[in-house]
Design a protein around this nucleic acid. Structure first.
Lengths: 162, 162
DNA sequence: TATGACCTTGGAGTGCACTCCAGGCAAGCG
DNA sequence: CGCTTGCCTGGAGTGCACTCCAAGGTCATA
C-alpha cells in the first residue's frame, strides 16, 4: 500500500514540499492550539516577503487560492509556507516569475504533469549549475584583483615607511 | 624597478584588466594591420551585448569615453573589451549597474582610491560566495524533487507494465 | 555614383517584479 | 463610542536595465 500507485497518487507535489521524502528541515511555527493558520503579517515575518508581494503572488497564480477567515482575511497554512520556501529558492536562481507560475499550474493540474514538471526542474538544475560555474569564475577574477590591490597597498606602505 | 612605487603607479586598474598579474586568458581579436580598434558591431559580436547597451553604458559612465574615428564613430580598444569582460562578470553576480558605475568612477579617479576599490571588491566577493552557497542549497532541493519525480515515474511504470 | 548596411544622437518606450495608494471593512480596547 | 491596528481590493506607480525610435550622416561595394 505504501508503494502502490494509489500511494503515489497521494504524494502530490504539495505533499512532497510539506514533509518530504528525504528529511526536510523540521522548521515551522506551531500554534499552541495546534492550528495551522497564519495571518499575512506572520507570513511576512517568516518569509521576508512583503504583504503586497504575497497578495500579488496569489493574484498572478503563483500561489493557489489561500484560505480565508470568515471575514475574508488570508489564512496561510504550513503547506503554503513550504511552497513559498520553494518559490524563494527558485527565485534566487533567477527563474522568471512567469516560469514559476507555469510550474504552479502544472502542480494544480495534477499527477498527469509529472513528466513536464520534472523536465522543468531538470532544466532549472542545469541553469543553476551553469550559474554556479559562472560565479566561481567571477570569484577567481575578484580574488585576482583583490590580491593585486592588496599587494599594491603593501608596496606603497613599504615605500612610505622606508 | 619592477616592484617600486613607480611601477605600481603604472599598474592601474586598467593595466590590471588588460594583461594581468596572474596570466589572464590570451583572448583578443587582433587586426592584420596590428590595430587595436573595433567598431561597435564587432564589440556586439564579441560580447553579446547590444549596440544600444554599449552606448548606454558609455552614457551612464560605466565606460569612460570611447575613442572616436575622425567621423565620430566609436572605436573600441582591447582595454575597453577587458573592461567589458569585468563588467560582464560583475553583472552576473547581480551587482547593480549603479555600483559598477561607482567602481568605474573610482578607477577614473586614480590610484588614491585603491583602498575603496579593494573594499568594494571584497564586499562583492562575499556576496558572490553567499550566492554560491544559496545556489548549492537550491541545487539540493532540486535534486530531491527530481529524484522524487523520477521515482514516482518508475513506480507508475511498474504499475502499468505489471 | 548609387545602393544598402552601418553608425550617430537624445529621448521615449518596454518588461519585469514588485510597491504603493485610496477607500473601505473588522476586531480590540479605554 | 471613538481610536488604532490590521487587513481587504483593484488599479496605478516605481526602479531597474535595457530597448527602440526618428532622423540623419558614413562607409564599402558594385
Amino acid at each position: 500500500m505504501q508503494t502502490t500507485a494509489a500511494a503515489t497518487e497521494e504524494r502530490t507535489e504539495e505533499a512532497l514540499t510539506r514533509t518530504d521524502i528525504c528529511s526536510a528541515p523540521p522548521r515551522r511555527h506551531p500554534r499552541p492550539d495546534g492550528q495551522d493558520q497564519y495571518t499575512i503579517s506572520e507570513v511576512v515575518a517568516f518569509t521576508g516577503l512583503s504583504a503586497h508581494t504575497l497578495r500579488w503572488y496569489e493574484r498572478i497564480g503563483l500561489m493557489s487560492h489561500i484560505d480565508r477567515s470568515h471575514t475574508g482575511q488570508r489564512r496561510y497554512t504550513n503547506r503554503d509556507l513550504d511552497w513559498l520556501d520553494l518559490v524563494g529558492k527558485l527565485r534566487l536562481t533567477g527563474m522568471p516569475v512567469a516560469d514559476m507560475v507555469r510550474y504552479a499550474e502544472l502542480v494544480r493540474e495534477g499527477d498527469g504533469t509529472y513528466g513536464e514538471r520534472c523536465a522543468l526542474l531538470e532544466e532549472t538544475r542545469r541553469d543553476v549549475q551553469a550559474r554556479i560555474a559562472e560565479l566561481q569564475d567571477t570569484l577567481a577574477v575578484l580574488d585576482r584583483k583583490i590580491s593585486f590591490y592588496t599587494d599594491a597597498g603593501r608596496v606603497r606602505e613599504a615605500e612610505t615607511t622606508r
